[in-house]
Design a protein around this nucleic acid. Structure first.
Lengths: 206, 206
DNA sequence: TAGATTGTTAATCGATTAACAATC
DNA sequence: TAGATTGTTAATCGATTAACAATC
């Protein structure tokens, strides 16, 4: 049933479903079931069916889901059936690794602008993209109409970079800096902090 | 009340609390309250108090929490009041960025062994650690009694690397490969896939 | 037809939140 | 003392799960 508000937690699982479907597709499989998918993901089959039911009916009784059709549909739902321009702020070790990572472009996320404040890095080129002075951030992001950004700067300056980005029109931020950002309500933020993930596991290790 | 089972979701928030407390501590602040902390993290104050109440009483009515005391206590709860040896598998762009990242060691996570299967990489040195042939993985991990590992290899080989690690005695895996791993029940796994995070945001962008 | 699997309902389970007595 | 804030209870809210009619 479309129209009603879909819980964030459901949206959060769709990329995981999509990833698994892509994998099955690339392996040449044509059909799958909520049971098979659930088993691969460590999730209950009922949950997968319930999640999908928020958006429509994608399967057939008796046969399950056509993999290619379902991944197309989920891609549309998530709006990843198109290309997205992404800004990258910070060109240190991490920023450079992000810029070199091939996994973004193949999924439609294109790093169209890179920024740093280090004169030694400004002007460097990667994948045909030049590292801009962070002073020109607003201008470049405005011009390219960029809505998504990746923050890969030290924690001490992440909040001010976030403010700059939002001021420039960015609506979604993937933040690698180990700090919780304060942003306006409508701005999307996702966090990647490997230390947090490690610390979530040590609790369970004796 | 200690003893009862603490929900995973509560454990998952503790590293976030700890990160915020460390920040306040470094800023020289001595006391905080559940309200202040909640505001900084975008979380309700009641939730923070409830979460902490699973482990004991750490605050004082009227004055709140002593920051240094609370961060020490949370560190103990999470078992991050000690050093952890970590293995890193994969020394490509991402693996190298991880190996160079200073944020791990400062939090007690020390990369004590690095593995790759590329002859060109085996033998290279980083931070005094030599890149080992992945064939020696079991032996090295056994010898160093390593319980945690980071996977930074292509998705196509991540599952087999995971199997190897677990066979060698690893109990917790931070997986950067874009694939859900199948592991025995007691093994901890955390995932970092930046594409998944980006895809969780595009849904909300128009 | 027989077997399989969907989409959905209703029940269960668990997490969040509001409220407040206790007390620093 | 007055003000602030804890830890905890109970109520609310929301998510997961089991079960099954529908149907391919």
């Amino acid at each position: 049933m479309a129209g009603a508000e879909v819980p964030d937690i459901v949206i959060g699982r769709l990329p995981i479903y999509l990833r698994a479907l892509n994998l099955l597709y690339e392996a040449g499989q044509e059909f799958t079931s909520s049971q098979e998918l659930g088993q691969k993901l460590g999730i209950g089959s009922a949950q997968i069916r319930k999640d999908l039911s928020h958006f429509g009916e994608f399967g057939k009784q008796g046969t399950g889901y056509e993999i290619n059709y379902l991944r197309e549909q989920i891609s549309k739902i998530l709006h990843v059936d198109r290309d997205w321009a992404v800004a990258l702020v910070g060109f240190g070790d991490l920023g450079q690794a992000i810029a070199h990572y091939g996994g973004f472009a193949s999924k439609g996320f294109h790093i169209e602008a890179i920024f740093d404040n280090d004169p030694a890095k400004i002007g460097q080129e990667t994948n045909g993209k030049i590292v801009h002075d962070i002073k020109s951030l607003a201008q470049v992001i405005n011009q390219l109409k960029i809505k998504m950004a990746i923050i890969a700067v030290p924690a001490s300056v992440a909040q001010s970079v976030s403010d700059l980005l939002i001021e420039a029109g960015v609506k979604a931020i993937l933040n690698y800096a180990p700090i919780t950002l304060t942003v306006p309500e409508k701005i999307q933020v996702q966090y990647i902090d490997p230390v947090v993930h490690l610390q979530r596991m040590t609790y369970y290790l004796v």
